[in-house]
Computed example of a mutant assay.
Amino acid sequence: MTDVPEPDISPELFAALAADPLAAQLGIHLEQVAPGYARATMTVGPAHLNAVGTAHGGATMALLDVVHAAVSNSHGTLAVAQDVHTEFLAPGRPGDVLTAVGTEVHRSTRTAVYRIEATSADGRLVATALARVFRLGTPWALEEDVVAMGAPPPVPPTMQLSVVEQPPPSPGEGTNPAGPTPAPDELR
C-alpha cells in the first residue's frame, strides 16, 4: 500500500486497541494507528532481557504482535491472527528504544497480510515479521464507558483464565531422579 498513512482512526477505536494489558505490563506504548498502519515503542529494560543480557525474543515478539493487532484491526473490523513469521536480525540492547511499524501488504474481505519491522533508535533492524489475519467481518463494538475508562472490554466467562494454585516443589524434588545434586567437592 502507501508509505504515508491515512488520517488516524477514531479515538474510540484507538483507545480500545491501546487497552492491551500485556502491552501495559511490558511498557509497550501504541503511538499511532491509521487504516493499514500502526506504530508502537518499547524501551528495553531489565525485565525484557534474556539470560545473555539482550532483549528476549518473547519481549521483541510481543512488541511486533501489539503492532500486528493494531494494524490488522485498524479498519474497524475484528481480525484475529492466523500466522506470524518472525526473523530476529540483531539483538535489542539494554536501554534501546525499539520502534515497531506495521504496514498493510494485502487485504481482502476475509484475510490480510502485514509487514512489521522493529528498529532501534540508532537504525538497526532488530526484527521483522510477516503476519496474516483472518478478518471476521464483524465491526468493533466500541462501548463508550469502556473506552472512557481506558480498560479492555470485559472477557466472556468462557474465555477467562483461572489461576490454579500449586505449592512450589521442594528443593531437589522433580529436578534430578537420583536425588539432590551433590556438592561440587563430592563430584571429584
Rank of each mutant, 00 (worst) to 15 (best):
I28V: 13
I28D: 11
V52S: 03
Q166I: 10
R39N: 01
Y37P: 03
L78D: 11
Q32C: 12
D3R: 01
R188A: 13
G58S: 08
T109N: 13
T60L: 15
R124Q: 13
D20W: 01
G76D: 04
P21W: 03
L78R: 10
V163F: 15
N73C: 09
T128C: 09
P167Q: 08
Y114D: 00
V147L: 07
P139D: 08
P154Y: 08
A69K: 02
E143D: 15
A131H: 01
S120V: 04
H48E: 11
A131L: 00
T99S: 06
A70T: 07
A59R: 10
V4L: 11
S72G: 06
T41I: 09
L26D: 08
M1I: 09
N50H: 06
V113Q: 07
Q166K: 13
R39W: 06
L142Y: 02
N73P: 03
E165Q: 13
G102Q: 05
R39Q: 05
T103K: 07
M1L: 09
I28R: 07
A148H: 11
R93F: 10
P152M: 12
V97A: 14
P167V: 10
L187K: 07
W140R: 00
L64G: 06
E6H: 10
P177V: 10
S74V: 11
P21G: 14
G53M: 11
D83F: 02
P139F: 05
T128P: 02
G92E: 01
A79L: 06
A148D: 08
